[in-house]
């Protein structure tokens, strides 16, 4: 049952930890909590490494939960050019190497579900399983997502960060959460949004989100167990579409979160973590059978 308690406790403060060097000159901010099988969290361009804490507290009791900021975003090093998806994927592997993580579960959200796919395709031995929350991948392609991301980019260019927030909020936030938080919540979360990222980082990220392979056929090559988690109030992909998407993976399934939006852990982090915990238990049992 959504109560938004975790969202109210949202933490954005960075820890004073050393950065991880990956590629030439690239240094990534990261956080690692808990011990055991690794879960690596992949940011979309609207959240940061610290903001995962309140949504993964239960997972950190049973697993090693790693979050990080992508190169050119948040507290990681910034360079003249936005990395390609291939370079972002290489950074994930560089991060795992530095943390001595042989293989990991990847959790992607929105646009980072495409990064999770790419890492699983390029480095299959490093990926124990995929969790795709509110995926931008579609069962027939990514046309709708690209159109939406292009519209977000135009809004950012024409109306700035606050204008973009006003555009994306009703598209990614569930109706239930929108009504529950009211205008005070809308305005308060806008302040969080404005402090998480910058217009330049977002422009680079949204531009990158328009690139990359959109073929659903790629998914048939991913052997890792895959869980699609989809809110049934996700405006970007219907529950039917989510189930069709999961069926494209050789070892995929879909779980629907009632009343949740495009970022389902905002709505019900407890249930979200339960789904991941159950998925990993099943995947580990199958791997050791």
């Amino acid at each position: 049952m959504p109560n938004y308690e975790a969202l109210h406790r949202l933490e954005l403060n960075y820890l004073d930890t050393p950065r991880i060097p990956t590629r030439d000159g690239v240094e990534l901010y990261y956080e690692s909590r808990g011990e055991g099988t690794a879960i690596t969290l992949l940011n979309n361009f609207f959240i940061s490494a610290p903001s995962w804490r309140v949504f993964t507290e239960e997972l950190a009791r049973n697993y090693r939960v790693v979050s990080y900021d992508m190169c050119n975003h948040g507290a990681s090093s910034h360079h003249d050019e936005e990395p390609t998806w291939e370079e972002h994927a290489a950074d994930v592997i560089g991060l795992l190497d530095a943390l001595e993580i042989e293989s990991t579960y990847l959790v992607g959200t929105s646009v980072s579900t495409a990064l999770a796919r790419d890492v699983a395709l390029r480095y299959p031995s490093r990926v124990r399983g995929l969790v795709l929350a509110g995926p931008v991948l579609g069962p027939r392609g990514m046309r709708r997502h690209r159109q939406i991301q292009r519209a977000w980019l135009r809004t950012l260019e024409d109306h700035g960060m606050a204008g973009l927030y006003g555009h994306i909020y009703p598209e990614v936030i569930s109706m239930e959460m929108n009504e529950a938080l009211g205008s005070a919540g809308f305005l308060g979360l806008r302040e969080s949004f404005l402090s998480i990222t910058t217009a330049e980082d977002l422009r680079n990220g949204l531009t990158l989100a328009l690139q990359g392979d959109t073929s659903p056929e790629l998914l048939a090559h991913i052997q890792a167990p895959t869980l699609v988690i989809l809110g049934d109030d996700d405006n970007l992909l219907s529950p039917t579409g989510g189930k069709e998407l999961a069926a494209l993976f050789p070892n995929g399934r879909c779980e629907i979160m009632p009343k949740a939006g495009h970022v389902p852990f905002f709505d019900d982090p407890e249930y979200f973590q339960e789904l991941i915990h159950k998925f990993i238990q099943e995947a580990e049992s199958a791997a050791h059978a």
Binding site: L7, H8, E11, G182, S183, A184, L187, G188
Partner: peptide
């Protein structure tokens, strides 16, 4: 000031000053 505290302040201001925030 945390996100939680800011939202709490905005809600408290509605009661204290007798108005409702608009988007």
């Amino acid at each position: 000031l945390s996100s939680h505290a800011l939202v709490g302040l905005l809600v408290a201001m509605e009661d204290a000053f007798g108005f409702e925030w608009q988007d």
